[in-house]
Amino acid sequence: MGFKLLSKLLVYLTASIMAIASPLAFSVDSSGEYPTVSEIPVGEVRLYQIADGVWSHIATQSFDGAVYPSNGLIVRDGDELLLIDTAWGAKNTAALLAEIEKQIGLPVTRAVSTHFHDDRVGGVDVLRAAGVATYASPSTRRLAEVEGNEIPTHSLEGLSSSGDAVRFGPVELFYPGAAHSTDNLIVYVPSASVLYGGCAIYELSRTSAGNVADADLAEWPTSIERIQQHYPEAQFVIPGHGLPGGLDLLKHTTNVVKAHTNRSVVE
């Protein structure tokens, strides 16, 4: 069995187990497998329904001669939608809004960016022009300005110390501490036991640490421990890039980060 097929099978099995364990909360999309990078042309966006009122959005972007996937989250909030992270750029984010209108038909009224990198804030200006209120932590807003990236308009308070959590509509926002970046936030959907790890969490097929220019490698494993301790009931975990899975993604990420750190020390 090929690795790609095995990865998709694991996603399907995880979703099936969740649907059985929580039949009222989960209505997993039966329309197909989780979209992969090879299936999404740059400039297009796919939506994948995880649970009743919960979707991931998947886009792709060219970077350094390669094409990478990027995940975000959409959560229903009454007759409105909360968006977590842009679709990595203005063109993708405009396509995301169009796809949401086509498939869901509810307005996106608020959006949260989970850290300051372009795959999370690139497209904020498109959201703002569409009347979406954009939010991020003060740290993310400051770092985005320093980096020359787009800056969300509103500040999220109460997320300055490791372990801080605040309720934001249908989700809980959690600051686990520094990891992929010093400002990275985690998003949890309690009604569906869905954990969105953003770039602080890796997919299972990833074996290298990737972009760690703004990471705190020493603190990252401790931050992941905080996530595990705060959300032990999480059933569906979405990484910032690639295929979702279960809580095993947290341990896998820790292993990859520690291996990278150990290699760096040896070198």
Rank of each mutant, 00 (worst) to 15 (best):
V237W: 09
L156Y: 03
V265H: 07
T261A: 06
T182M: 03
G177I: 01
E267L: 08
V194M: 14
T93L: 02
G105A: 13
K102H: 02
V28Y: 03
G245T: 02
D52G: 07
E267K: 12
H57K: 01
L83A: 07
V54K: 01
T153V: 09
V146Q: 11
D216Y: 09
D216W: 07
K258G: 08
N262F: 14
E44M: 10
K258I: 11
L217S: 13
G198H: 00
E80M: 05
A192Y: 05
S193Q: 07
H154R: 04
V187G: 07
I151P: 02
S7L: 03
S160G: 07
R206E: 07
L6G: 08
R128V: 09
D164V: 05
G177V: 00
G242I: 01
R167L: 04
G245P: 01
D248G: 07
S193I: 04
V171F: 04
I227S: 04
N262L: 06
F168A: 05
V67L: 12
A21E: 09
E145Q: 04
E203T: 15
E80V: 11
P232E: 04
L195C: 01
T182Y: 08
E150P: 15
S70T: 14
L243V: 07
L243G: 10
T14P: 09
G89K: 05
A129S: 12
I17D: 03
D64Q: 10
R226L: 09
I151K: 15
D118V: 05
G245I: 01
P69M: 03
Y12P: 15
S161F: 12
V126N: 04
T109K: 08
V42Q: 11
G197T: 04
V171Y: 01
I227C: 10
G245Q: 09
A209P: 03
Y34S: 12
Y34D: 06
A111Q: 04
L159I: 05
I224N: 13
N255A: 15
S181Y: 01
A215W: 07
F3H: 04
G169Q: 07
V124K: 13
G2S: 13
V187F: 00
E147Y: 10
H180I: 00
A66D: 07
I201V: 09
L204K: 11
A66L: 08
S137D: 04
L9R: 08
K102M: 15
A129E: 10
E80Q: 07
Q103Y: 03
